[in-house]
């Protein structure tokens, strides 16, 4: 891409959309959707290349790989990758080590750094995909490799739109609890593609040499949706497929475990707001479920059917 005069002046070559926000970036971030709004609009978030100090000045919290000061400053220092400073939910400065894998840097920016930005902006990022079912968002939450994207893709194949992949941002301050749109593309393993009948030809691998691919054949929903339910996925070998509803402290605890970058959020002083947000979700009628998912792609259609059936229950 050839930078325009304006971009050169600002030093920003790329613009992307994340929910309703415009990200201006020195780095190319193919994970994100290109900005499709007015070209001259001010960026909400900037990703710049620059120098990042090894330490924050007078940090409040120092952990193994990150430091924080107050609510608004977060410094991630990863040997082999570099240092990333996030300030005020708006400014990200990337100081990559020489020889660092740009793919790793990008996945940090679109993963944990994105989540820290949402925490600083007062929103709640869950480690979850989301799909739209009957006009409402259903979050599919889980740790890495829990099968979030695979189950989302199975539901999308059944005609439901995808709302976001991997990070689902919840806004509890809206009139109703809503989930914001994120990236439409899904990251799927080869065995899931096979089960869904999608040929991997021409798909870009998530990491070189891995049998995991970006799949962006679905357009996705680009507007916020009222959140109806969160399904927490637990994937294990040799467990029977089962879904059950959680309530009370079990529901709050399960949701809390699904908060993206929870320790940094806690260090940024978000504990009280997060507790209020989680309990407000439940009080607002968002239902919480735990899905035991056997470690076998052949179970995905049955799992999708179980989720759809459970959601038909009266709230």
């Amino acid at each position: 891409m050839i930078p325009t005069a304006q971009h050169r002046r600002r030093g920003m070559n790329h613009a992307y959309r994340l929910a309703a926000l415009k990200i201006e970036s020195d780095l190319e971030l193919p994970d994100l959707q290109p900005w499709d709004g007015p070209a001259n609009s001010e960026g909400d978030i900037t990703f710049r290349l620059g120098t990042v100090p090894a330490q924050l000045e007078a940090p409040d919290r120092v952990e193994a790989i990150f430091q924080t000061r107050g609510h608004d400053e977060y410094l991630l220092a990863l040997p082999g990758t570099g240092r990333i400073l996030v300030r005020h939910g708006r400014e990200v400065t990337v100081d990559a080590e020489r020889g660092a894998d740009p793919v790793s840097t990008r996945s940090l920016l679109t993963g944990p750094i994105q989540a820290v930005l949402w925490h600083q902006r007062g929103l709640l990022p869950l480690h979850a995909n989301a799909v739209v079912i009957d006009g409402q968002a259903v979050a599919l939450a889980g740790n890495s490799a829990a099968g979030k994207s695979a189950l989302a893709a199975t539901l999308v194949q059944l005609g439901h739109e995808t709302l976001t992949d991997d990070i689902c941002v919840i806004d509890v301050d809206a009139p109703r609890v809503t989930a914001l749109p994120g990236v439409a593309r899904l990251r799927l393993w080869r065995d899931t593609l096979d089960m869904l009948g999608i040929a991997p030809d021409g798909l870009n691998p998530v990491l070189s040499g891995k049998e995991k691919f970006f799949v962006d054949r679905w357009s996705g929903c680009s507007a916020p949706r009222e959140l109806a339910a969160v399904v927490v996925l637990v994937r294990r070998t040799n467990i029977p497929l089962a879904i059950g509803r959680l309530s009370g402290i079990a529901a709050v605890g399960a949701l809390r475990d699904m908060i993206h970058t929870r320790r940094p959020a806690s260090a940024l002083g978000r504990d009280v707001q997060i507790f209020a947000a989680l309990t407000k979700m439940l009080a607002s009628g968002v239902t919480i479920w735990r899905l035991h998912l056997p470690d076998n792609p052949a179970c995905l259609p049955d799992a999708a059917a179980k989720v759809l059936h459970a959601l038909e229950e009266p709230r």
């Binding site: 709050v252 009280v272 309990t279």
Partner: peptide, 21 residues
């Protein structure tokens, strides 16, 4: 900190950040 969720009181220790019901 406390909140009532479907009749059940859930709590967070402000100092430790732990949740219990």
């Amino acid at each position: 900190l406390t909140a009532e969720v479907s009749g059940e009181i859930v709590m967070m220790s402000i100092e430790r950040g732990s949740y219990f019901g």
